[in-house]
Amino acid sequence: MRNIIEAARRWVWLQLAVVYTRYLLGGAFVFASLVKMKGHRFTRLSGAADPIHSAMHLFETLYQSGLYWQFLGGAQCLAGFLLLTQRFATLGALLFLPIIANIFVITLSYDFGGTPVITGLMLLANALLLAWDWPTLRVLVGRPALLPVPGPQAPLWEGVGLVLFAYTAGYRYYTDAYNFLLWAGVCTAVGALGLLAAWYLRRRGAAGAPASSRQPGPL
């Protein structure tokens, strides 16, 4: 298992898949957290009159709790932020796990339609991120940590993550009547620009290196 993970961590496309999975999960949590932190309803309508065993009534109960509702938002925002930073993504994935596991069970317990598929995929993606970080997480079971493989253009991806956090948090802070396609489109554009920048830096680095020392490396 250890050899498989170590070999996988050296494959540049898997490195990039991990980077963007962190962006996707982190961005989704930050997007969903700000409305709770502001003390507003997750949905526009009150669910007080809905049947007690319904998703809308559950949301209304959580909203009416006040401090607990804001605490949930703060925990989501922190987990999402840590994932977006890349540098502290391992800690973010650990914090993300109990939150998304709880959300997944809630969506199974109430009539959320196809939502359990989405939350289940998020839980699976988080589990894969934890498996990716197993060389670091080994210390939790009394095993020595292994030296991590350098990621692809780490400073660049940290910067992209901070831009995504600033945009998402700012957008959700200033508006409740959001346009999801607008938010997702801007985030996709930022991510694409980051990928282009990584490709350019790789090409420039390869062009400036002596021919004898040119080897495939992280993007």
Rank of each mutant, 00 (worst) to 15 (best):
P98Y: 07
A166P: 00
L137V: 02
P116Q: 02
I52T: 15
W11P: 05
G39D: 04
V105K: 08
E6A: 06
I5P: 03
V18D: 03
S33H: 02
G74N: 10
A192G: 14
Y174I: 11
A198P: 03
Y23K: 05
N179L: 12
W157D: 04
F59N: 06
A49T: 13
L72Y: 09
V139T: 12
N179W: 10
R87G: 00
V141H: 15
A48Q: 12
T119W: 02
N102P: 01
L108D: 03
W11E: 14
G142D: 00
L25V: 03
V12R: 10
G26V: 01
A189H: 00
L195M: 07
C187A: 15
Q153E: 09
L193E: 09
R138Q: 14
Y167V: 11
L146Y: 01
Q70D: 01
L128S: 00
R202V: 07
L146M: 12
A17K: 03
A125L: 15
R87F: 05
M56G: 01
H57G: 02
G113V: 09
G217A: 14
Y174K: 09
W11A: 15
A198R: 00
R41A: 05
R143K: 15
A32H: 15
L84G: 05
W13H: 07
G74Y: 13
Y110W: 11
F81Q: 02
R22K: 12
R214I: 09
Y178N: 13
D111L: 08
L182M: 14
I100W: 03
A197P: 00
A79S: 07
D176M: 13
G74W: 14
A125E: 09
A8R: 03
L84P: 02
N179D: 15
R2C: 07
R9L: 00
A166L: 14
Y200N: 09
T188E: 10
F59C: 00
G170A: 10
L94S: 06
I4Y: 02
L34F: 03
A55F: 13
M122K: 07
A28K: 12
L94C: 07
R138S: 15
P152V: 00
G191S: 05
Y20A: 08
A89Q: 06
V139R: 15
R138K: 13
F29W: 09
P155E: 07
T90D: 04
A154K: 11
Y110E: 05
T175F: 08
P148C: 05
L58Y: 13
L164K: 07
S109W: 01
S213L: 15
M37H: 04
I100N: 08
Y178W: 12
A131F: 10
F104H: 12
W11N: 14
V160I: 15
Q64Y: 06
L25A: 06
Q86Y: 04
Q76I: 02
Q15D: 04
G142T: 01
D176V: 12
L162M: 13
W183K: 14
Y167N: 06
L78Q: 08
R138T: 14
I52N: 12
P144G: 06
T85H: 01
I103R: 01
A154L: 12
L82F: 02
A93Q: 01
G217Q: 14
D133M: 05
A75Q: 10
Y110T: 06
L58P: 06
L128F: 03
A189K: 02
V160C: 05
A28H: 11
V149A: 03
T136C: 08
Y174S: 11
G217Y: 10
Y63K: 09
Y173V: 14
L58E: 07
F81P: 03
